[in-house]
Amino acid sequence: MSLLCFDLFVNSCGELIRYEPANQLMLFIVQDISILLNLIIILLMLFNTYVFQVGLVSVLLERFRALLMLSVLYLTFSITLHCWLMNLRWFNTNTYIWTDGLQVLFMLHRTASVLYYYFYKRTAECLGDPRLYEDSPWLQDIFTRVRHQGSFLNSQQH
């Protein structure tokens, strides 16, 4: 959650230091690394579940697909926005430069950030569910369904 708070801080206050491009560049680099670390942390949390360990990766991917895709999209938007901003403003710190494309990318980035915060927090709460870390009737039911579908598909192929 601290990495999310840092990301929110940079999104809120990153433009205030645009007059010092080296500092802004370092802040953007740390922000992009924190987004990547958040993605790695969620993946590690998914790998530690009992559901993953018994081989039901598809169940986890189906349940948390939105966050994984949104994380990659948000990281892509962040890197693109940061490169574009630094490219336009590195030598022109005193001028106001906002192209139409940059404004669109900025709005997409900020919209993706709100969705990213929501889905990340929701996923972190969902990963606290004890049913994901132990054998349970819910998991046995899913495992039986997956095994039954696999045997049904194999019988149709022969």
Rank of each mutant, 00 (worst) to 15 (best):
L108S: 10
L153W: 05
A124E: 12
Y118V: 15
H148Y: 04
A112I: 03
W138G: 03
Y117Q: 09
R122Q: 12
L115Y: 09
Y118S: 13
F119N: 06
P137E: 02
A112V: 04
K121C: 10
E125T: 14
C126E: 14
Y116H: 15
N154M: 09
S113E: 06
R122W: 12
Y118H: 14
F152P: 00
Y117S: 09
S113T: 08
K121Q: 12
I142Y: 00
Y117H: 08
I142M: 06
Q149N: 13
D129A: 12
F106C: 09
T144Q: 12
H148V: 00
Y120D: 08
L132K: 07
S113N: 11
S151K: 14
R122G: 05
L108R: 05
T123E: 04
S113H: 13
F143T: 09
D141S: 01
D135T: 11
W138R: 05
D129L: 12
S136C: 10
F119D: 12
P137W: 00
F119S: 13
H148G: 00
Y118A: 15
L153Q: 15
G150S: 11
T111R: 04
L139S: 06
S151L: 14
H148M: 08
P130S: 14
F152G: 01
D129P: 06
F152Y: 11
Y116K: 02
R122C: 06
L127F: 03
Y133N: 07
M107T: 13
F119I: 07
T144V: 03
P137R: 05
L115E: 05
L153N: 12
Y118M: 10
L108E: 10
M107E: 11
R145P: 00
